[in-house]
Design a protein around this nucleic acid. Structure first.
Length: 720
DNA sequence: CAGGGTAGCT
DNA sequence: AGCTACC
């Protein structure tokens, strides 16, 4: 059976002319056919997969770990380990106890905080993007790169005698025996892969594998053929061999557990089974698009393009645990997660427009995997607190919102048993300001910056409300209370005045930890331990639209904050936007729509964003890309680097590819980084509906008003 | 599934 | 909002 005809060698002149056509006429190339069928025949796709990524990062951070068996631990499992540990029988996703049995000398490093992994991961992606914009991330440790145009341009420039060998392995062949001249594109692809792996090693310090093939599926399948730090190219003639070697359908990327089960129900277990199964029957089970895709995957056919990933579309933070069943714990956890998330969000520079809270409930009858979530819009005046750096203000306001979302899933007064909480910001809005671009770019590299100077409140949180699992704890009168004055003395020893509490030297997160520890000695909340009159007095003071129960759960300082004239004013000053009430303080039917009234958002942003150019110039100072700079050099073939095709590549339509290719690598990188910020807006699929209010001015706003260096660079761009 | 993320489709 | 998939 002739598999994948469409992927086999085609008439080259036809492809050449198509390529030239689209390169010559940048304008058209209907974006209608956005992610399918399009591409040139003969793509060259690279898949990069870093070796035991987390372990490598930890070994770079602490070279003493390099030669000891090392495991990266998240909770009770080893998520990955270095090769020393693997030699001793340790494997990925092994329980800590099993791993320690196998290898008692195993050194463990906690890997729950992903910050360093995320930073290194983006360094790799951005390095790749400095060579070619078509880079798609898959997790933190894998990247696809569409090298088609790089290959074509080398093909045009390289003498035949210079390109007749493969670098690295060739699947199923001893690569000496392969005539590279029969497979010039893949052979050149293997050279590019080798260069890029070397660049990753020399500039970021990480090793990894690569696969070279004609589509993503194949490149990925083949990349791990030879494992640490090697690469493998796949010739078309060996496609059926690769697919046939897969031990089950589950091994086909794109076929997950559920799909494999449904296929199994149809009697299909091997790849060959699926290849031979009648398409119409498949359509019956999966519908036409999915059926086609599945069958193609089994054949090694994959039309999916390398879709530039761009900046993340959401930021989330989560924690899992054996059991959480008190409201107090939930509140504390939400506060912890939100605090670190807000810090990340601030560094990113974009403004989240929706907040989502996800939980996983315990259930003995292995029903666990299911999660529930609730989300709500974030009014822009609150979002602005994040981008502007008022992180504490944002925490103050968002914690109760998140608690409210929690109570949309878990009844007050009902017992619960959670095993996970996740907090997520999404619907991220790039603002017109230079600030956002800079912050977002540097966010992946920069280390923790200046500590927060002032601490508006010390979070103690209501210890004892926690109480019973019945969840109604905040309703009872609690004895053993301490006085407000005592509490203040304990929680804010730095100052006797409650109004301004400067806590220098602590970041917010650190103070939060400190505060929580202190709070463990406390016995009750402000509300909980007050007499009836006091409680009523407080209730009278509940800010408009704030759920009194939620309000009472809050630390006193937060309550004060919410009652402050400044805060109350902020509610009314943005009359056109939803008040806090709209995002979940009141109980029923708020619109679950993301906040879409962008008009006044724009106004404010514009005002804030158009700071003068000199400010922005400093934002673009060189160290923005420090650490990964691809300084001068090595792109030895600098002039050979092919330029991205502007038409269907997803590359900004207004870039001049020739000019771009000639820019110094670090400048290219910077542009790519910048572009990455815009990319989500350019993406077709879902981001289209989100966030943008059909004022098709997006592009103009973005390209206008960037940093001065960028403005200089922008002269290379044709007006779109 | 474990764990802490992501993205896309429905 | 949930599911499926990927790492």
């Amino acid at each position: 059976m002739d598999i994948s005809n469409d992927e086999l060698e085609e008439d080259e002149t036809q492809w050449e002319s198509r390529f030239l056509d689209s390169a010559a006429s940048p304008a058209p190339v209907s974006e209608a056919s956005v992610n399918k069928k399009p591409g040139p025949p003969h793509r060259v796709i690279l898949h990069f997969d870093l070796d035991c990524f987390y372990a490598q990062v930890e070994m770079l951070r602490n070279p003493a770990l390099t030669h000891v068996p090392l495991g990266i631990q998240q909770k009770y499992i080893i998520v990955t380990c270095n090769y020393v540990a693997r030699e001793r029988g340790v494997n990925k996703l092994m329980s800590v106890t099993a791993a320690k049995e196998k290898c008692p000398e195993l050194v463990l490093v906690k890997g729950e905080d992903l910050t360093h992994y995320r930073e290194m991961s983006y360094k790799v992606t951005e390095l790749l993007m400095s060579y070619c914009p078509l880079v798609e991330r898959l997790g933190f440790d894998e990247n696809f790169l569409d090298a088609t145009e790089m290959v074509e341009s080398r093909l045009a420039q390289t003498a035949e005698s210079d390109r007749f060998s493969f670098k690295g392995h060739v699947y199923n062949h001893s690569s000496a025996e392969v005539q590279a001249s029969d497979h010039p594109r893949l052979a050149l692809g293997s050279h590019i892969a080798a260069e890029l792996r070397e660049a990753i090693h020399s500039k970021v310090g990480l090793t990894g594998c690569a696969g070279i093939a004609t589509n993503k599926l194949l490149a990925k399948l083949v990349s791990g053929t030879f494992k640490p730090n090697q690469q493998t190219a796949l010739l078309q003639e060996d496609v059926s061999h690769v697919m046939g070697c897969l031990s089950s359908l589950r091994k086909v990327p794109g076929v997950g557990h559920q799909t494999a089960k449904r296929l199994q129900a149809l009697g299909l277990v091997s790849v060959k089974d699926l290849q031979l199964y009648p398409l119409n029957e498949l359509v019956r089970e999966f519908g036409s698009p999915s059926a086609q895709r599945l069958k193609n995957l089994a054949l090694g056919v994959d039309d999916a393009r390398v879709t530039p990933t761009g900046a993340p579309q959401s930021l989330s933070d989560e924690d899992s645990f054996k059991k959480m069943s008190s409201t107090k714990e939930v509140l504390d956890k939400i506060q912890e997660l939100l605090s670190s998330l807000l810090e990340r969000m601030h560094k990113d520079g974009r403004q989240p427009q929706t907040l989502r809270l996800t939980i996983r409930r315990y259930s003995e009858t292995n029903k666990w995997f299911s999660r529930e979530s609730r989300q709500c819009p974030i009014p822009s005046h609150i979002g602005q607190k994040i981008t502007s750096g008022s992180i504490e203000d944002a925490v103050v306001v968002l914690v109760p919102v998140a608690v409210k979302l929690f109570h949309k899933m878990v009844d007050r007064g009902a017992a619960f048993h959670l095993t996970l909480i996740n907090v997520c910001f999404s619907n991220l809005q790039t603002r017109g300001a230079a600030v956002s671009g800079k912050a977002a770019i540097t966010s992946f590299f920069t280390r923790n910056t200046s500590p927060t100077k002032t601490q508006v409140f010390s979070s103690q949180s209501q210890e004892d409300l926690s109480q019973d699992a019945d969840g109604r704890c905040w309703d009872h009168q609690v004895s053993g209370s301490i006085t407000t004055a005592q509490r203040r003395a304990e929680t804010t020893p730095e100052s006797s005045s409650g109004s301004e509490v400067p806590v220098s030297g602590f970041t917010w997160k650190q103070s939060a930890v400190v505060a929580v520890k202190r709070s463990q000695k406390e016995t009750c909340s402000t509300a909980g331990c007050n007499s009836n009159e006091t409680t009523r007095a407080l209730e009278r003071q509940v800010p408009p639209n704030v759920d009194p129960e939620v309000f009472q759960l809050l630390p006193e300082e937060i309550q004060k904050e919410l009652l402050s004239p400044a805060y109350l004013n902020s509610l009314s000053s943005t009359s056109a936007s939803p008040s806090v009430a709209d995002i979940g303080y009141t109980s029923e039917n708020k619109p679950s729509q993301p906040f879409t009234d962008s008009q006044n958002t724009e106004d404010v942003n514009e005002a804030a964003g158009e700071s003068d150019a000199s400010d922005r110039a400093s934002s673009w100072s060189p160290q923005c890309s420090a650490g990964t700079s691809v300084q001068g050099e090595t792109v030895t073939e600098g002039e050979k680097l092919s330029s991205p095709r502007s038409s269907d590549s997803g590359f900004p339509g207004n870039v001049d590819p020739k000019v771009f290719a000639e820019l110094p690598p670090d400048i290219r990188r910077e542009l790519m980084s910048e572009w990455r910020q815009q990319k989500p807006l350019l993406k077709t699929p879902s981001s289209r509906k989100a966030g943008r209010s059909s004022t098709g001015k997006e592009k103009d706003r973005k390209t206008a008003g960037r940093g001065s260096q960028l403005n200089n660079l922008l002269k290379y761009f044709k007006p779109s």
